[in-house]
Nucleic acid binder design. Sequence first.
DNA 1: CTTTGTGAAATCCTTCACAGCG
DNA 2: CGCTGTGAAGGATTTCACAAAG
Lengths: 239, 239
Amino acid sequence: MRGRRIPEATVARLPTYLQVLIDAAEAGVGTIASEELARGAGFNSAKVRKDLSHLGTYGTRGVGYGVEELAREISLVLGLTEDRPVVLVGVGNLGRALVSYDGFRARGFRISALVDADPEVIGRRVADLVVRAVDDLPAIVAEQGIGLAVLAIPAASAQEVAGQLVAAGVRSILSFAPTHLEVPDHVTVRRVDLSTELQILSFYEQLAGSHTGAVPAPPGSLSTAAERAGDRAAGGQDA
Amino acid sequence: MRGRRIPEATVARLPTYLQVLIDAAEAGVGTIASEELARGAGFNSAKVRKDLSHLGTYGTRGVGYGVEELAREISLVLGLTEDRPVVLVGVGNLGRALVSYDGFRARGFRISALVDADPEVIGRRVADLVVRAVDDLPAIVAEQGIGLAVLAIPAASAQEVAGQLVAAGVRSILSFAPTHLEVPDHVTVRRVDLSTELQILSFYEQLAGSHTGAVPAPPGSLSTAAERAGDRAAGGQDA
DNA sequence: CTTTGTGAAATCCTTCACAGCG
DNA sequence: CGCTGTGAAGGATTTCACAAAG
């Protein structure tokens, strides 16, 4: 299967495989079987083999996959061969946390520009970068050859800013705003919605009901939960 | 279709519908058609109708869905009827950002306890809560009747802490650690991996290549990107 | 003898298209 | 007449199970 169409579901799993391979390489492992790779990634081995078969044939029967070789191949397929500059829009709580998140750098993504709408924040220095205005986006994107943007602003202004990003030439957007973004076909958006994730968990938790095997806590009790209100957190992910 | 098995894919979309419905309600809209709901959520109307049919029949033919009524029903299905206490493990950069993220509170999730492994941080006060030790987890979970945990710690210690969470009685974990967590069947884990998301975007961006219609920037140039290194960000999501 | 690579089967999800209700 | 609810068709993804390679 050396055909050039890699299924979406497979693409979504490649970064996880890469992570396991990097860990294995650091542990000095030279070769890894699909069974082992599956254990580390949390899938089953048939899925792993089918996925990898889409990249070509990099395994050796009776042995497994060459760790370094496969890691290199996946990096290549994902386009991680060289450093990629990223613009981060929204230097609120979440934005600032993302700036100092070194998981990005470790995979070749470098936040090379910060942008915000708040005049109070523009011009300030955050993690060695000066926060610039949204209007500067076209210049920033062109100068630094940026293709990726991370959006950490409230839902209310997300669509407008997304439009400005697209106009500036950005082709991929990772959005943390809890709203749908309408963009042209040539632009890819991935949404990460933190509260959505909790709501999904909530559904499955109530399904499990109270027939949990090893839970020492009283099942439905919200007992002393109201001790401290912790109200008024107006912070959130502000622009 | 009032059968009690709601497909996973549908569950994952319910929070988005809820979001659109809440916005509609605030805008004073009383009734909404699947077409309109689909536009707001970014899906197509057939999918919306099929999804909603799994909850029962809440629409009126020729009219649409009652906004308030449907929102109430989805909230019920997701188990969002009452406030849910959440324990947050890991008060690093990401953890602190999550504490002040008000999107959680808006959906009935309240971070009611903070836990960290670092002795330097334990005892400190963050957003009206005192950070407690990991060893206190069983007591915290039992006292406050906690079922959900958010994990914002490095991959290295994630599995161990997950085990402690499970032992303490937590049934759902939202993990930001870039690693697979092994948990018993009755526990649900959802992983949000920020760097994975960027890698997926990276794949689709290179697919698009340089045949973008309206991009004023030079396609493959990483030009002046190296202006400021922004190195050494040892921060990340520390425990 | 071990482990890959893969057709075929099984399952899950999406889309179509329209009957039928309001 | 408009819009929901849904069988049926169409795709996509996962799993099975095994032949073939090392």
